[in-house]
Design a protein around this nucleic acid. Structure first.
Lengths: 180, 180
DNA sequence: GGCCGCATGTAACGGGTTACATGATTAC
DNA sequence: GTAATCATGTAACCCGTTACATGCGGCC
């Protein structure tokens, strides 16, 4: 079976959460889902058109400056079906850092260490950001969505923390060997 | 600056490690780099042709049943330049599991728990696999490449372990709340 | 003879990124 | 007035996936 296009469901899901316009969806993804999703305007607007043609969403011309949509019953059903469908396998995520590391015998150990240190800086920044987002979520009155947001955030925190520890251990390993 | 196509460098790097034919490269990636990279024949063969045209690699018609290549000095220089170039930012890796979890209020908690449990099964399998690969690497005589292979493997192990712990913690959180 | 694994390749397709274009409104 | 932000959209391009095609050699 061919893979499902997930852009559709990102949009349907946001629509169900009260994100009504394409611009707002993009903004929400960039700020709230940015640790595990991204999207471009070149995806959003064509997809909104397609979904409207398929009858999964409907334009509610509120006449304002922005075009707004709502889910139709069909759209709601399709979203629910997709959410419930299990993810069957672990995707291979291409990792540029690891590809370079795999070939790192072509560079000096100092250069490798420097790059891993730099990576650790980025990871620490990200961890900071996660903590701030968490505080923001916890500050808001408890919706039934908040729990799921916190779970996705916890995923990011644990992963980032583990990778930070890997950075530190790897630098130690590299410093231990003779410099090449 | 436009992003660099990394398929090129995966191929150049493997060529430098003694992988000489397209078929062998694909096989090596599928078995040894599969926890952080993948490639298809539809990428390999056209890229080999392109690299040969650009003078980064050269065909060494060993006349056998397979077409083999070697790096030219230009190719070696390009590989080295790319390896040394730092990776500037953390890529956003789209994660289907988290996208569904973010919208999981549309399903019952039981269904969510079941999916996370299933995910944990896959992670445990992967952890098993990493341990086996590690033993294989350690069994071989120490090359100067082995250290880097073990570092990439350690990355996978730490990440997978952290995600497993996340699965267990998340299931507990979900079981703690009232069932919806 | 037929099947399987090795080995190389091509073409269609799908999806995401980027650049570009347009117009409205707000801020200084 | 002009710069920035909001807002919607299109088209070109790049890249990866998939399906298909071909031919060879070994095995049962």
């Amino acid at each position: 079976m061919p893979k499902e296009n997930m852009t559709r469901y990102a949009i349907l899901g946001l629509l169900a959460s009260g994100c009504t316009s394409g611009y707002e969806m993009k903004h929400t993804i960039d700020t709230s889902l940015n640790h595990f999703w991204k999207i471009s305007f070149g995806q959003v607007y064509p997809m909104l058109k397609t979904l409207a043609q398929e009858g999964l969403i409907e334009e509610t011309s509120e006449g304002d400056d922005r075009k707004t949509f709502i889910l139709t019953p069909d759209g709601e059903a399709d979203l629910r079906r997709w959410v419930e469908e299990p993810t069957t396998e672990l995707p291979v995520q291409r990792n540029e850092l690891l590809l370079k590391l795999y070939f790192a015998r072509h560079e000096s150990k100092e250069t490798t260490i420097q790059k891993i240190d730099q990576h650790a800086v980025l990871l620490r920044e990200r961890l900071e950001m996660y903590h701030m987002i968490e505080q923001t979520i916890r500050a808001y009155p408890e919706t039934n969505e908040a729990m799921y947001w916190l779970l996705t955030l916890d995923y990011g925190k644990r992963k980032t923390q583990a990778l930070l520890e890997w950075c530190e251990a790897s630098v130690q390993t590299l410093e231990g060997g003779n410099s090449s």
